[in-house]
């Protein structure tokens, strides 16, 4: 690098440091505040405690929201992985107009503003007379994440190549046997990555869920309702736990993707 390039590099480094500080400072601050009681806007720094976390464990509505979130997340993972894998498998075998139509359609909820997906589902449910429940939330979440699962799985299937599937067919295996014994083992890492990613997205999904959840709210919706009222140590404690969970999941996803990439490269 020339001296001038080095100056640009240093300046960009400062930009990144500043941006990361802005991205992380607020959430770190909120997390730290979970340990300190505050009175009328003044934080009592002398008295750290984990009392707020204990109170959370006794809050029935939060625990219920957490349970709902887990149910929705796991169901979304199961449904979207099954559907996404099948659709990707079909495209990898037969890239016809049906595949292209499906591809276009499932990318819509992912690319369009969430408010459109949420409202169109809400409006249709209303007209069909279907009450909102966790089931409708799962439908919304599956539509939102399906494109990602499809993409990740399709990439993996394409890298496996068609010849191994043809070989399996030539040896007399049925479609299901080929899938079960030939493809599934090499898909496991892609499935794991997509699964964690889908769960993380479902865990935080707010903008579609708000239209589709009836009386059973998920954690982000419950948090939103709490936050609208104001700030409190309880909220901070809950926020800290949710953040810690998200960070763990993101690092896991990044690590899984990286492991796949380096395996593909080496």
């Amino acid at each position: 690098m020339s001296p001038r390039e080095r100056i640009v590099h240093a300046l960009l480094g400062c930009l990144m440091a500043a941006a990361f500080a802005v991205l992380y400072a607020p959430i770190i601050l909120v997390s730290v505040l979970a340990f300190f009681p505050a009175l009328r806007g003044k934080v009592d720094w002398s008295n750290p405690s984990v009392e707020a976390f204990g109170k959370l464990a006794g809050n029935a509505s939060i625990l219920e929201a957490l349970l709902n979130t887990l149910i929705v997340g796991l169901t979304t993972v199961a449904v979207s992985l099954a559907l996404g894998t099948l659709l990707a498998y079909r495209t990898s075998r037969r890239n016809d107009w049906v595949s292209r139509l499906v591809e276009f359609v499932i990318f819509l909820p992912f690319l369009l503003p969430p408010i459109i997906t949420g409202l169109s589902l809400l409006s249709s449910l209303q007209q069909a007379g279907i009450p909102r429940s966790l089931v409708t939330v799962v439908i919304g979440h599956v539509l939102f994440v399906l494109a990602l699962v499809y993409r990740l799985l399709l990439n993996r299937l394409r890298s496996i190549g068609a010849s191994i599937v043809d070989a399996s067919h030539d040896l007399g295996a049925s479609g299901w046997q080929t899938f079960r014994y030939v493809l599934a083992p090499s898909l496991s890492s892609a499935l794991l990555t997509s699964g964690v990613l889908v769960f993380a997205l479902s865990f935080d999904e707010t903008l579609i869920t708000v239209f589709l959840s009836g009386d059973d709210s998920t954690l982000p919706i419950r948090l939103w309702a709490m936050i609208r009222v104001g700030f409190s140590q309880d909220i901070n404690a809950l926020v800290m736990l949710v953040l810690a969970f998200s960070v763990v999941m993101t690092v896991a996803i990044a690590w899984l993707l990286q492991a796949r990439r380096s395996r593909a490269a080496g």
Binding site: F203, V239, T250
Partner: peptide
């Protein structure tokens, strides 16, 4: 992947 609501808060 951090909660959108939490970032706003």
């Amino acid at each position: 992947l951090m909660s959108y609501i939490i970032k706003l808060y």
